[in-house]
Simulated assay, not measured.
Amino acid sequence: MDIVTDLVLMGALAVAWTAAGLVADGLQNARSAAELRRRSGWLSALVVIGAAVFVAVPAVLWIRPGEQQAPSAALLAAIPALVALTVGVRRLGPVRRGAGAFATAPQTPLPPALRAAAAHPLIIVPLQVTGLAAIIGLPIAAHVVEIPASNVAGIAITVVGVAVLAIGIRAAVRHSRLSLLALAPIGRGRPRVPVSPR
């Protein structure tokens, strides 16, 4: 058993994806389009690093054969990571390109529609859930929790389910609020139809 290797791999996985979740959570707080473009660039880099760590887990297992818990621990984060790498990255691309459209005027305030797009739940939720799953995988990598362990697994599934639900609701409410703010100028700009007196 190589506990150190398992902990290093899962620690790197947890750090990369947790950092990506935190950066994604702050995308809509950018003050300018240039800042949003910079933050989305950091986020893209963190996602690439997190994906590289996922690739490193089976590679290290192949180089150093033996009983290792890192693959089992990494499986917890694999499904949300796949969602983040497919749906989340696809939604992040237009946000970064939209912010890049203001490259000639970097201090331009962030448009409400772009701010709402940066707060989309499909960007934020998969990244934060992947980070949470990677953190939960650390005790497995440290050989503190053995798999399968029905009692611990049941508690972990319940805690993760509640946390995922809370993350999803928070992201959906915030995105809805920012979407309404993006539509507010349209509502204010509608011409009023005069009512003829009868």
Rank of each mutant, 00 (worst) to 15 (best):
M1A: 13
D2N: 11
V4F: 14
V4D: 15
T5G: 15
L7C: 10
G11H: 04
L13Y: 00
A14N: 04
W17C: 00
T18R: 12
A19E: 11
A20G: 01
A20K: 04
G21Q: 07
L22H: 06
V23N: 01
A24H: 09
A24C: 07
D25C: 07
L27S: 07
L27P: 06
Q28L: 14
N29T: 11
R31T: 09
R31G: 09
S32L: 00
S32K: 03
A34S: 08
E35W: 03
E35A: 08
R37H: 12
R39N: 07
R39H: 00
R39K: 08
R39C: 01
S40Q: 02
L43A: 01
A45T: 08
L46A: 02
I49P: 01
G50V: 01
A52P: 04
V55L: 14
V55E: 06
V55K: 01
A56T: 10
V57H: 00
A59E: 02
A59T: 04
L61A: 13
W62A: 15
I63D: 07
G66S: 00
G66M: 05
E67Q: 15
Q68R: 15
Q68W: 15
P71E: 12
S72K: 14
A73F: 01
L76W: 00
A78Y: 04
I79N: 13
P80Q: 00
A81L: 03
V83D: 06
A84R: 02
L85F: 08
V87Y: 10
V89Y: 09
R90Y: 11
R90F: 12
R90C: 12
L92M: 11
R97M: 13
G98R: 07
A99F: 04
G100S: 05
T104R: 15
T108A: 09
P109N: 00
L110G: 05
P111Q: 01
P111C: 05
P112Y: 07
L114S: 03
R115K: 12
R115D: 06
A116Y: 02
A116N: 02
A118K: 09
H120F: 11
P121F: 05
P121I: 08
P121M: 08
P121Q: 08
L122G: 15
V125H: 05
P126F: 03
L127S: 03
T130M: 01
T130F: 03
T130R: 02
G131W: 03
L132M: 06
L132P: 07
I135H: 02
I136V: 10
G137E: 00
L138A: 05
P139Y: 00
P139C: 02
I140S: 05
I140A: 06
A141K: 05
H143N: 14
H143C: 08
V144K: 05
V145K: 07
E146V: 15
S150Q: 14
G154F: 09
I155M: 09
I155T: 09
I157D: 14
T158E: 04
V160A: 04
G161F: 06
V162G: 05
V164K: 04
A166W: 09
A166Y: 05
I167W: 11
I167V: 11
G168S: 13
R170W: 11
S176R: 15
S176W: 12
R177C: 10
L178P: 11
L180P: 10
L181H: 12
L181T: 11
A184I: 13
A184Q: 14
G187I: 10
R190Q: 13
R190W: 03
R190A: 09
R192Y: 11
R192S: 12
P194Y: 06
S196N: 11
R198M: 12
